[in-house]
Design a protein around this nucleic acid. Structure first.
Lengths: 205, 205
DNA sequence: GCGAAAAGTGCAACAGCTTCACTTTTGAAG
DNA sequence: CTTCAAAAGTGAAGCTGTTGCACTTTTCGC
């Protein structure tokens, strides 16, 4: 599988040869892994095999990726920026939960549209329990950052548990929605719950 | 380590010898495991060692417990009943989220009080990431049942996503709270969010 | 008592992951 | 250009959870 295109990790700061080589190795590993996974399924490809395909030792592989699941979510780090931006740069008058809802919906739409390779990627993730779980766990790691952004935007104290709660619930919402036939509708409804609750909490201060 | 006492799994339906022996083996394994874990930590005890201590083969061990983590949560199955009861038999006039909040608070209090053995058990779980995660995942498996109870009690259609959302969020609330210094306060605040949201959703039909 | 199903056994193997001692590459300072 | 230390990569060996397999023992219903 050739490079997925131009949208590599946040711009290309001039990298030294060392950094370039390191990045290349990492890419080679991730590419080989994804290709094999798509061909034969996550559970039917061994670590050693991936290492072979990428022509590195398993030791090297694990220096780049802490666990097997991480091979799949190579450049998933910069999603946090979009998340925070959705809150911080929301249109005036829009509530924070509403902004998060819109962001989630936008995300869904983007997924549906984009190229077929990405579609099969999604199918791989959603059909492999280990990957679903790992992805959700990764996603939840943005809770603290999101909570902070929410606190700032709402004027609440930075450690107000309500901010953490809203952040956490909002990040869990897609997972809730996925369990329903009409995921889009479910997502909206889940965020409605949060929106009304949030309004009530913040209005009576 | 002798038997942990009288509160065995829900009553003693007359069991055949086979069932009794099976249960005994299971107990022996779980007891040995818990003892070793408490002594030396979850990660410092191997499966083979537990099997030895319980005087069974590792094959047998895995016929009783699907994964290592399950050894710790032996009789954790009947918590669902209490959860559903909290919703179904809540005092008149109390909202569903409020009932869930009270149940959660009651649970906290019970934990704090009970005998020191249980306290160290809790410490074991909370200090071992693998166990924390496994426990949360187990806990979330009650989402569907709870959502159903909520739907019935609120008169909403059984498949209304709002019910699933409330159930899921309520089950996640303790996890959110655990991240704060004053967990009790945080728990209340998280449920406040849900309570206000739920009221708004259900009041306008 | 008999036969089938269930429970248990022992062992070998696999796969993910780690450790260790080691070589190669690279960046920069002298 | 040399030198040197840090970083990247190697290879093999090993630990640990988990599974498969062929097998014996126990228990139950008849």
């Amino acid at each position: 599988m050739p490079e997925t295109g131009s949208r590599g990790a946040t711009a290309s700061a001039p990298m030294s040869r060392r950094e370039r080589k390191k990045a290349a190795t990492r890419q080679a590993i991730a590419d080989a892994a994804l290709r094999l996974f798509l061909e034969r399924g996550f559970d039917n490809v061994g670590i050693r095999e991936i290492a072979d395909a990428a022509d590195v030792s398993t030791t090297t592989l694990f220096k780049h990726f802490p666990v097997k699941e991480a091979l799949v979510f190579d450049r998933e780090a910069d999603l946090e920026a979009g998340l925070l931006a959705a809150v911080r740069e929301r249109p005036p008058g829009q509530s924070i939960p509403a902004a998060l809802r819109e962001h989630a919906l936008r995300h869904r739409r983007a997924d549906a549209d984009s190229d077929p390779r990405f579609a099969s990627f999604l199918e791989l993730v959603n059909s492999t329990p280990a990957l679903r779980d790992y992805h959700q766990a990764m996603w939840l790691r943005h809770t603290a950052a999101l909570a902070e952004a929410i606190a700032e935007e709402s004027g609440l104290p930075a450690d107000d548990p309500a901010c953490t709660a809203l952040a956490h619930f909002a990040l869990e919402a897609p997972r809730v929605a996925r369990a329903h036939d009409d995921a889009r509708e479910a997502l909206i409804r889940a965020f409605d719950l949060l929106d009304h609750g949030w309004r009530a909490l913040t209005s009576r201060t």
